[in-house]
Each structure stands twice: as C-alpha cells, then as structure tokens.
C-alpha cells in the first residue's frame, strides 16, 4: 500500500526515549522542560537545548535568526509561517520543535542554495509582482513549493475532478492552484498574481 512515512524518517532520527530523563541537568535549565533536539535546517545540522514549549517557528526566528518564516497569527490560521519539514509544507507555528528531533527543515532562506541564484518560484514572484508588503510571501513560496510536489505525487484537492484517476499526478489548473494555496492568506490581495507566478513555474 502506498503511504508516506511520518516525520523523522531521515538518518538523523534518534532512538525513541523519554526526553525528560536522559539529558544533563546542568546549565540552569529545568531538565524536565527542556530537551536536546537536532534539526537539519537548510542542509545544516543544529543541535539545541530547547524549551518544550518552543515551536519550530520560534526556533527558526529566535534561535537560528532565520526570519523568513513569519509570525502572522501563531495559530495555524494564516500560513505565513509555512516551511517544509521532511519535504512537506506545514505551519511551523503549531509544531513543537522537540517533536521534530531529526527532521529536515527547509525555509525560504534555503531555496537560494548559493545565496545568489533565485529559485524559479522566487523569480516568478518578482516577475509577476506577486506580493506587496512581503509578509506572507515566504510562506506563499514555501506553500507553492509543497503544493507543486503534492500534485505531482497525486494528492487530490477539494476541487480535483473525481474523474482524475487516483494516484496519478494532478494537473495544476488555475482553480487547483487557488484551492491548494488557500492556507496562505494575503491581505494585500496579491492572489491573482501569486496564482500566475505559480502557473509560470508549473508550465
């Protein structure tokens, strides 16, 4: 049966253990409420001792100074915090970082591999003027990236024609793009341009 694994299937994944009892007690941190956690972020491993309450979004922004993922609502209601975890788009504001130990995280900063050449989606957003204030933009781009691979892997959406055979790639029509990106709000109203930018890339 075709099925994807859960998070944490990368080689970095650690053994299963009670996080509260196997870390050192020194350093002034409550050992029951902090855990050592390793995340592979944009290809680089980071091992951090994290407050269990810390969500991935705050790890990126406050611990790693990667502020591309934005805090728009902090409750999974706007999509500005969208990043890819083990290749899948997620709301980083709702993921407790400790539960992601061993995962691979890609943020908007990771899309420009050499810091120079833009990812085709980034280029398309510029070409189409697919943003204004820019605050939702990194989330839109990461979400589009995830949505494109989901469609290629045969994930349907709410608007997918039921006659599309299951398991086959879903062509990304304008309606498909709009539905699949609906988890990313844009108050500046750049939606039509964003859809055009995504179309540019999938064509």
């Amino acid at each position: 049966m075709w099925i994807r694994g859960p998070y944490g299937t990368s080689p970095l994944r650690k053994g299963i253990h009670d996080m509260g009892t196997d870390i050192h007690a020194d350093g002034g941190l409550s050992r029951r409420h902090h855990s050592e956690t390793t995340l592979q972020v944009n290809g680089k491993p980071h091992t951090l001792t994290l407050d269990h309450r810390r969500v991935l979004l705050d790890v990126l922004r406050e611990d790693l100074d990667l502020c591309g993922a934005k805090k728009g609502c902090d409750h999974g209601q706007c999509g500005a915090c969208t990043v890819l975890v083990d290749g899948r788009r997620v709301n980083s504001c709702l993921l407790l970082a400790v539960s992601l130990d061993g995962c691979e995280v890609t943020t908007v900063e990771g899309l420009t591999a050499d810091g120079e050449e833009l990812h085709p989606l980034q280029r398309a957003f510029l070409d189409r003027d697919a943003f204004q204030c820019g605050y939702c933009t990194p989330g839109q781009i990461c979400s589009a990236l995830g949505a494109i691979s989901e469609a290629a892997e045969g994930h349907p959406s709410h608007v997918t024609d039921p006659s599309v055979p299951s398991g086959r790639p879903v062509p990304l029509s304008r309606d498909e793009i709009r539905e699949r990106l609906s988890g990313n709000l844009c108050r500046c109203g750049a939606y039509p341009r964003i859809a055009e930018a995504v179309e540019d890339v999938v064509r």
């Binding site: 999509g79 993921l95 959406s157």
Partner: peptide, 19 residues
C-alpha cells in the same frame, strides 16, 4: 469511500492536513 477523501479535503488547509 470517496466521501471520506472529499470530507478531509474540504477541511483546513494543505499545510494543516499534512500535519
């Protein structure tokens, strides 16, 4: 069981459904 697939896809967002 198409109703189940349709129901899941009618809820939340792509990101939330992934988690």
């Amino acid at each position: 069981w198409p109703a189940l697939s349709q129901a899941v896809l009618a809820g939340a967002s792509g990101q939330l459904r992934n988690a």
